[in-house]
C-alpha cells in the first residue's frame, strides 16, 4: 500500500486523503527508509571516491577499498597547488556559465522557431541540428582545431565556450522542442492578440513556461561542460585557462596515476556541481509557480 502510494502519489497534493493517517505515516516512513538505503547503495561508489581523496596514494594502492586509517588533507593541498586548481575552478566556472547561458537562450529560441514555425524549412533545420548528435567527437577534431587556429583562439577560453555552445546545441534543442510541443499555444496566442512581438512572447510567455526544461538543459549541459576533458585539453591545455578536468588528469601517467590527488581534485570540483544543482532545484519549483500557474 505505502510503496504504491509513494509511487503514484505524484504531483497530486495530499489533500482529500483523509483516514488511516497513522498507518500511512508508518508506511511512508518505511518507504522512505527503504528508498534511503537504496540511494546510499547507489551512490556508494561516489562516496568511495570522496573517501579516497583523504588517503595517500600508497594507501590506495595497498587496499583500494579499505577504510581510511587516518584522514589526510595532503592530497588536497597537492591538487590545489601543484594542479593549480584555484584558477582552473574559476575558468571552468566562467566557461560553463557562458556556454550554458548560450545554450538556454539560443537553444530555446531555435527550438521555438522549429516547433512553432512547423513548416518544411523548420523540419530541415531540426534534422540538420540533430545530425550534430551523430558524429563522434574525434572525427571532427582536426578541422575544428585548424579553424580555432585561424581565428587565433587556441589558448583562449572563448574557443571552449564557442565549442561547447555549438556542440551541445542539438541536445538543448531536443529538450526544448519536446517540451514546447506539449505546451499549450493559447498563452502565446493571447499575447499576440494583445499586440506582443516574438521576442516579447518569448520573454514573457515561453521562457517562464519552459523554466522546468531550462533547468533540465542547464543541469545536463552544465555537467557535460564541467566534466569535458578532451576538447578543453586541446584548446586551452597548457595555457593559464586550463579547466579543472585538464588539471586533474595531469596526474594520470603512462604506467601509474596518483589517484589520491585525482580524487582530491575531483571532490573539490564536485562541490560547485552540488551547489548549482540545489539552487536549480529551488528554481524549478519557483519557475513552475511563476509560470504555469501564474
Amino acid at each position: 500500500m505505502s510503496a504504491i502510494s509513494v509511487w503514484a502519489g505524484g504531483a497530486v497534493p495530499a489533500r482529500g486523503r483523509g483516514g488511516h493517517s497513522i498507518q500511512r505515516r508508518v508506511g511512508t516512513l518505511v518507504g522512505r527508509a527503504g528508498l534511503a538505503i537504496a540511494t546510499v547503495a547507489f551512490v556508494s561508489p561516489v562516496l568511495l571516491s570522496v573517501e579516497m581523496s583523504f588517503r595517500s596514494n600508497t594507501a590506495i594502492n595497498v587496499a583500494p577499498l579499505a577504510w581510511p586509517k587516518s584522514l589526510s588533507l595532503s592530497n588536497f593541498t597537492t591538487a590545489w597547488s601543484a594542479g593549480g586548481l584555484g584558477q582552473a575552478l574559476l575558468w571552468s566556472a566562467v566557461i560553463a556559465v557562458v556556454s550554458v547561458m548560450w545554450l538556454t537562450v539560443a537553444g530555446q529560441v531555435l527550438a521555438y522557431y522549429i516547433v512553432r514555425r512547423g513548416n518544411r524549412l523548420a523540419s530541415v533545420a531540426l534534422l540538420y541540428v540533430m545530425a550534430g548528435l551523430a558524429f563522434p567527437a574525434p572525427s571532427r577534431l582536426l578541422p575544428l582545431y585548424e579553424l580555432m587556429l585561424s581565428l587565433h583562439l587556441i589558448g583562449n577560453p572563448i574557443s571552449v565556450m564557442l565549442f561547447q555552445g555549438a556542440t551541445l546545441t542539438p541536445l538543448s534543442v531536443l529538450i526544448y522542442r519536446s517540451f514546447l510541443q506539449r505546451m499549450p499555444i493559447e498563452y502565446e496566442d493571447a499575447a499576440y492578440v494583445d499586440g506582443a512581438g516574438h521576442l516579447q512572447v518569448l520573454r514573457h510567455v515561453v521562457v517562464p513556461m519552459l523554466w522546468p526544461s531550462s533547468v533540465a538543459v542547464a543541469s545536463l549541459t552544465g555537467i557535460m561542460i564541467w566534466n569535458d576533458f578532451f576538447t578543453p585539453l586541446l584548446l586551452v591545455g597548457g595555457s593559464t585557462y586550463a579547466t579543472v578536468p585538464v588539471k586533474i588528469y595531469t596526474f594520470v601517467g603512462q604506467y601509474t596515476a596518483q589517484w589520491g590527488d585525482i580524487f582530491a581534485g575531483l571532490t573539490l570540483a564536485v562541490i560547485p556541481v552540488i551547489i548549482v544543482f540545489i539552487l536549480l532545484q529551488r528554481h524549478l519549483v519557483e519557475g513552475l509557480g511563476a509560470g504555469l500557474k501564474g
Partner: peptide
C-alpha cells in the same frame, strides 16, 4: 530567430564534420 543558434552550430559543428 533561428539564426544565432544555427550560425554557431554551423561554424563549429557542421563545418568540421563535413570538412573531415
Amino acid at each position: 530567430l533561428a539564426l544565432p543558434g544555427l550560425g554557431l552550430y554551423s561554424v563549429f559543428v557542421a563545418y568540421p564534420a563535413v570538412a573531415t
